[in-house]
Design a protein around this nucleic acid. Structure first.
Lengths: 292, 292
DNA sequence: TGATTCGGTAAAGTTTCTATACCGTCACCG
DNA sequence: CGGTGACGGTATAGAAACTTTACCGAATCA
């Protein structure tokens, strides 16, 4: 049933996807929408709309008084599967200033609010140098402002992965000075200099490779119905859910989930969730995992 | 100096941007890269590369032994400004399963790790209904699982904005039952039903419209050099930074920044930052702002 | 009523793109 | 050392996409 649709040219396929995106999310689409989004001519936009009608006649109908094509009652997408998380991720990028509205396909943005991101942005050339070192398996000399030393210092690292702790981005890297694997906060890398062949293999970074499973449950101090709501929020089945996290990120994951403080630091209705297998998890946290 | 570049067709411009993206981030680009990303023919990819060379001869040169075009030493982008935050946001989306690698322009993904997102995803049709109600200024009947009641219940809301608390997405809405503005967690909306004309004006939602300014500083329990590092992380000037947040999101912002607990709930080196103007902020928090 | 703004169509001409064919260079490998 | 494959390039013909221009109809609104 999908014959003919795969060998459309890339640009046309994008425009048909756009038509479908607008139909799903906004319920209507116009020639001028297509003209604005892609800079094609009006007759071309007409052609696209008719091409879409050819392919999926039930998905769209022209509404004379709305002066637009509207979504049909039996709309079923052919070019994309509507994804709320993706839509919301775009909203967030717009809110964070990462994307312009024009770069999304969202026609009319709803009012938006988000908790501020707060972190300093990463220098693109620094990021590029780190990514390149990872890709080529090289060691990289960086000017790094560490927590423990007052002045930034040049040091060699051999990065093998990129990590996100919920706030900041890290290079997961072998640190030459002390022969260990650590997290280097990307925004603390002020400059990069030389490169040389790798010094260590990322596969030796067991804290990165091995996982911990966190078992999460609603806070027992909540009423049964509150617990059920929390279970719904977190998609728990049988009152708990399991989350897999790299051991190296465990410290951050607990912090981000609010599970790093004493159980009574917050009221149950603020805390929401508890860690069931804390003993097991704690036994892995003897070594404090913090970025340098 | 940018003559002729604006009236290129949309698809061609995308491909030239792609060439530039790859040059900046990976340092090289190929005919086959373009063929794989856009499904064009090999001669077309040749044409594109030569067109790019025409426009920016200094940015690219063919390296015979690498069998690819490589970034020139004086590379200066013409079609996009390299943005690390955007690159990283894409990495995160890939890590969260929101994007496929093929949908990004990143050629070779670095190893990736992130703290898990953990929240249940939002139903696209529910989101669509909420967005539509916001756009059209309508009230919407929703089946909502609240914290306070054991069973989900049908209720009317008049949403006027979408909010993100760092974990979950909300509809900011006027609640008909009690004539107040509240946050409704989108994943707790199980179904939507009727719509009717708006009942309240979003402009009356003062907690949403009015802002609070949080003044953040490094934790005083840290050593001076540690404080300086934290100041760097958060882009602070003169030892502090100000963050503006909607009053309705204040509760979540404090929680997300780890500023919702007693000052001694964490060690300084775990806490990192403190809120300087807590008194001022607390005076606004007497009304506990939590989603229903 | 007339202007505007949607929608549509058609024809001619330009640009883009594919398919095909053929060539050159470099690195690798038997 | 020569063959092979994977890059790069070019040229041509023909198809497809797209623009420009022109003109039409229906609905809405002042």
């Amino acid at each position: 049933m999908d014959e003919g649709r795969t060998n459309l040219r890339w640009g046309i396929k994008r425009r048909l996807e756009f038509i479908e995106f607008r139909l799903f999310w906004e319920g209507h689409v116009n020639r001028s929408d297509i003209v604005n989004a892609f800079g094609v001519s009006i007759p071309q936009a007409s052609t696209d709309l008719n091409r879409y009608l050819d392919i999926a006649p039930a998905n769209m109908a022209y509404d004379k008084s709305a002066k637009a094509y509207v979504r049909g009652p039996d709309f079923s997408p052919r070019f994309l599967s509507p994804d709320a998380d993706r839509y919301l991720a775009q909203l967030r990028s717009v809110s964070d200033g990462i994307l312009d509205q024009g770069e999304t396909w969202i026609g009319q943005l709803p009012g938006l609010g988000a908790t501020p991101a707060l972190v300093r942005s990463v220098n693109p050339k620094v990021l590029r140098a780190v990514i390149a070192a990872i890709r080529r398996g090289e060691a990289l000399e960086i000017l790094y402002q560490s927590m423990s030393q007052p002045e930034p210092r040049w040091r060699w690292i051999a990065p093998h992965a990129i990590g996100f702790d919920g706030f900041r981005w890290h290079a997961r890297a072998h640190s030459e000075g002390d022969d260990t694997f650590k997290d280097f906060v990307l925004s603390r890398i002020l400059e990069t200099r030389a490169i040389r062949p790798a010094t260590a293999d990322g596969n030796a970074d067991l804290d990165w490779i091995e996982d911990v499973v966190l078992e999460i449950a609603p806070h027992p101090g909540l009423s049964p119905s509150q617990q059920r709501t929390i279970a719904l929020d977190y998609g728990m089945t049988e009152g708990k859910s399991k989350v897999r996290v790299r051991r190296a990120l465990l410290y951050y994951a607990l912090k981000r989930l609010g599970l790093d403080t004493a159980p009574d630091a917050r009221r149950p209705q603020d805390q929401h969730i508890v860690l069931i297998n804390r003993d097991e998890v704690d036994s892995l946290t003897h070594k404090r995992e913090e970025s340098v």
